[in-house]
Structure formats: structure tokens, C-alpha cells
Deep mutational scan, measured.
Amino acid sequence: MLDDRARMEAAKKEKVEQILAEFQLQEEDLKKVMRRMQKEMDRGLRLETHEEASVKMLPTYVRSTPEGSEVGDFLSLDLGGTNFRVMLVKVGEGEEGQWSVKTKHQMYSIPEDAMTGTAEMLFDYISECISDFLDKHQMKHKKLPLGFTFSFPVRHEDIDKGILLNWTKGFKASGAEGNNVVGLLRDAIKRRGDFEMDVVAMVNDTVATMISCYYEDHQCEVGMIVGTGCNACYMEEMQNVELVEGDEGRMCVNTEWGAFGDSGELDEFLLEYDRLVDESSANPGQQLYEKLIGGKYMGELVRLVLLRLVDENLLFHGEASEQLRTRGAFETRFVSQVESDTGDRKQIYNILSTLGLRPSTTDCDIVRRACESVSTRAAHMCSAGLAGVINRMRESRSEDVMRITVGVDGSVYKLHPSFKERFHASVRRLTPSCEITFIESEEGSGRGAALVSAVACKKACMLGQ
């Protein structure tokens, strides 16, 4: 009897593995994704193909990295998701002549009506938060230079001027797309009239992360975010950046690689679950690469896999709870928690219980395998993109072996128990001629924006502006 049951459990697990095998990517698959990513990057950089390229390769006008001589107080704003952060950054000489960066910050959550109302409502709310922060720190009387981390696709015309191309991540505030974001912020500050600010720089969160990590390690020339969304930036040779005049030196390019796949480059790798996630998203047909990796989508992918296993009578005796059938019910943090389970399955059992399920031991094991399959594919897909960037940098610099540091931020990278190990191992397999160091950014977005502002202020002083 026991043997029969054991055989049935083994057969069930084997069927589960057959279904989950769809998520496995072979090294040849990853090399294919990497080569296609490089081709799209090239198209994004070139003037004649930029418009139709899915990977936009947006110039950021960040050319210099901090040298350690900029000092002063800077205000930093960070808008990239449902939370908005205001930070005071003091850049100065530390002990023994070292450079020191001290920060104080406060988080504000953005109400739904500000995210989806008008641009005026959104930026009025942001300036209200700045006003509140300055009151708390008794700094209303000071006109501070301000660095703005704005983590949406922007076409820069200068370091302090950028046109919002399109909202992502659930934002829909009308009247912002096609307009200068810094102008919208300046107008809102003017409307309030109770404080003055000098907006000197606007950067993407990947750029802010790279600059913040450069402060720790001067070989950091790539910034990457794996959180709600997924994106990367890197220092490109100016001669390859056709959208900006000049051939000397390097400029940081914001790849906006989340949109890779929007022209069909990933079609052969998309599964039924991916198509369902895409169809029910706020932007169907867009940001397809990001939807395979980002935390906004990972939990939902797992939920759809679990429903398939229920329908195949391989999980929960073929019956799903009402909660499990509800879109968004299986949160991405559950994926991390399930994979963090120590082996007694308590954590998995508790999560499934909150979803109205009474799982068996085998159910718990199957749910864990589903989570591992989805998150491992995410790590491997992400590795193909980064390997594409790094191999490109090595080739354009004609280096036999390139040493490089990548600064990384984002909740999936930082909080998932195995993502970074799987990701690092896969990147290294795909970049055999590179020695890569990964560092995690601390308060990256805010500190990085302030350091970019410090560079901009120093330049302005040198130019006598």
C-alpha cells in the first residue's frame, strides 16, 4: 500500500517536472537572447534605426563620474514606483581627507489618484512632500541643488532636461508624456511658492545606482535594477552614441532593455503563462523582457503555473481556492519566502493557508518547484541581457580580458534567497573573457542622484555659470 502511494507521488512529481521543464533555458538559448539583445542595442544607438529599435539606448548626458572633490548639501528625489523618497545628502571631506556622503531620508507613498490623475496632481503632491521634508529638517530658507531620480523612459536633451516617452509600472498621470519632466517639477514648486529649489540633474535609477557604486569602486561602469521592473545602464564610447554629437570619451546610456521583445525577438521563448500575464497587464505587448524578470510579474506567473497544475490534477487534489483564482493573489514576496523555507515546509504551508488552501507535504514541495522554475528562468533571462552589455563593452574597448564592476539594486536581487547566485553564475558562463565584480548599492537611487548633481554643480562652477 505504502509502495503504491510512494509510486503515485513519484509519478505525480515526474509529471510536474515535465510541465515545469518549459521554463528551462539551455545555454544556447541564452546565447541567442544575448546576441539578439546586442543587435537591438546597436539599432538603438544608431541614428537611422533608433526610432524602430525596441531597446532605445537613451543617452543620459552623464559623462563624468564623481571624483571626490564636490562638497555641499544636496536634496535628492526618487520616483520610480508607488513609494517616493526625499533625501538630504551631505557631501563633504571625511576623516583623513576621505570623501564622505551622509544621508537623511523619508519615504512617502503615492496615492492612487496622483498616479493615475493628471501630471499637475502628481507633481503638486511631490512638491508637497518636499515642503514637508524641508519643514522637518528646518531647511526651507536654503535654496538647495536638487537631483531627481526618475525611473521611467526619458529622452534627455541635457542633464536637466528630459522628455517622458511613456509611463510604465502602473503610472498613468495624463499630460506628462511628451513633456519635460524637470519643467513639470519646477512648475509645481513655483505653484507652491513656499520654498526654492535648483533642479540641476535628472537621472534614471540605473544611472543613480551606477554612480553610487562608483563611489565604492571606481571600476563600476554598469548599473542595473532588478526590482519591480528590470533595466540597466553602462558607459558607452561616445563615438557609438549617434544621437549625441561628439566622439570623445564616454557617456552613460540608459538601455531601457525592459522593452526588448516588443518587436518579436522573444516570441519563441514566451510561454502561455507569459501571454496571460501580458494580456492582463496595463501595457499589453510592451516591456516583454521586463515581464519575464521583474517583481511586478513574478508572483503572478507562479500563480498561473499553480492553476495549470491544479487543472492537471497534480496539486491540491485538483481544487483551487477562490483566493488562488484571484489575479495578483500570489505576491512576489511569497516566491522569495517559499524558496527561503528551511525544509520543514512550515513557511510554505503558512503562505498557502493564507490563500485558503490546506496543502499536503507533496503540495508544498511542488509549489516550491514552481517558484524555483519561474525565478530561475528570470535570473537566466536577466543574465543574457547583462552578458550582452558586458561583452559589447569588452569588444568596443578591444580588451582581451576586461575587469568590470556592476552596481545592482532592486528588491528581487536583494531579497530573493537564490536569485543573485543563479544570476551571477549564468552571467559568468556567458562572459568567459571578463572578470566581473557585483556590488549592491546602498540607498543607491538617492545618493547617486545627489552625486550626479554634485558633478553638475562642479561643472557649472568651472564653466562660470
Rank of each mutant, 00 (worst) to 15 (best):
E221I: 01
L301V: 09
I390R: 00
F419R: 04
N254A: 02
E120M: 13
V253H: 00
E67P: 13
E242Q: 05
T354G: 08
M115D: 07
G328W: 07
F152P: 14
C457E: 11
G356V: 02
N254L: 07
M139Y: 09
C233M: 00
T65V: 09
A387K: 00
I404T: 13
G446I: 12
L309M: 05
Q98W: 08
T228M: 05
M251R: 00
L58M: 07
L304I: 11
F269A: 04
S280C: 10
V374E: 01
S54M: 15
Y289A: 15
I130Q: 10
A53S: 13
D158I: 12
H105T: 10
A114G: 09
V406M: 02
I390D: 00
S263L: 08
S383M: 04
H380G: 11
V367H: 00
F195K: 01
G264C: 12
E120I: 14
G388Y: 06
L79W: 09
T362L: 09
I404P: 05
A114V: 11
D198F: 00
W167V: 11
M197W: 07
H156A: 15
Q347F: 08
A201S: 09
R303K: 03
K56A: 07
T431F: 07
T255A: 12
S375H: 01
E248A: 07
A173L: 05
L451Y: 09
G318A: 15
E256C: 15
V101L: 09
R63Q: 00
G299L: 03
N231F: 02
S131V: 12
V305D: 00
D73R: 00
M115F: 09
E265G: 02
D274N: 14
Y297K: 15
V207Y: 00
L415A: 03
T49A: 05
Y125L: 08
M393Y: 15
D113Y: 14
M381C: 07
M115V: 11
P153T: 11
K190S: 15
Q138E: 12
N283I: 11
A259Y: 09
E290G: 11
G295L: 15
L146S: 13
G388Q: 10
T376P: 00
R369F: 09
Q337W: 08
H380A: 12
H137R: 05
W167D: 14
Q106V: 11
E268D: 01
E221R: 05
N204S: 07
T116L: 09
E322H: 14
I163A: 11
S281G: 14
R369H: 06
Q138N: 11
N179M: 05
V335I: 09
N313H: 04
D158P: 15
A6Q: 15
R327C: 12
D205Y: 10
D400V: 07
A387F: 01
A201G: 06
E272Y: 01
K12D: 15
V253D: 00
D274I: 02
L288Y: 15
V154H: 11
Q98P: 02
G44W: 00
L164I: 11
P432A: 12
R46S: 14
H105E: 06
K102Q: 12
V277C: 09
K142Q: 12
D217C: 03
V91R: 04
S383E: 02
L185S: 01
T49G: 09
V33F: 05
E421L: 13
V222Y: 00
G448S: 10
D274A: 01
L307R: 05
R447Y: 14
S151H: 12
D267Y: 06
N254P: 01
D365R: 03
V207F: 01
K56D: 03
C364N: 07
R429K: 14
S340G: 05
E221W: 05
R327K: 07
A53M: 03
E48A: 13
E9W: 10
V244I: 08
Q239H: 01
K142I: 05
E128G: 08
G407K: 10
Y61R: 01
Q106P: 00
K291H: 09
F150Q: 15
E48D: 06
L45S: 14
E70Y: 07
T118A: 10
F438R: 01
L75Q: 00
M402I: 09
L146I: 15
A320H: 02
C434W: 04
S373T: 05
G117F: 07
D274C: 05
L271K: 05
G343I: 01
G410L: 12
N254G: 04
T255K: 01
L164G: 13
N231H: 00
V33Q: 09
K459R: 10
L324G: 02
A11S: 09
K420Q: 08
W167C: 13
T60P: 00
T431D: 07
G249Q: 00
K136N: 07
S411I: 14
L386N: 04
L309E: 00
E14C: 10
G246K: 03
G407Q: 03
R368H: 12
E440W: 08
N179F: 13
V367F: 04
T118M: 04
E157A: 10
E67D: 14
L430H: 09
K172Q: 03
T118S: 10
D400M: 02
N231C: 07
V244F: 00
L415E: 14
G80F: 12
G343D: 04
C252K: 00
G407L: 02
M8D: 14
Q286E: 13
L271F: 01
N283D: 13
G94L: 11
Q18D: 03
E421G: 11
N179K: 11
M393C: 14
A329Y: 07
S340E: 06
G72P: 00
K56W: 03
K90T: 05
A384W: 05
H380T: 12
C230V: 12
D262G: 08
V241K: 00
A6W: 09
E395W: 10
L314E: 04
R63I: 00
M41W: 01
R36W: 02
L315R: 00
K346Q: 09
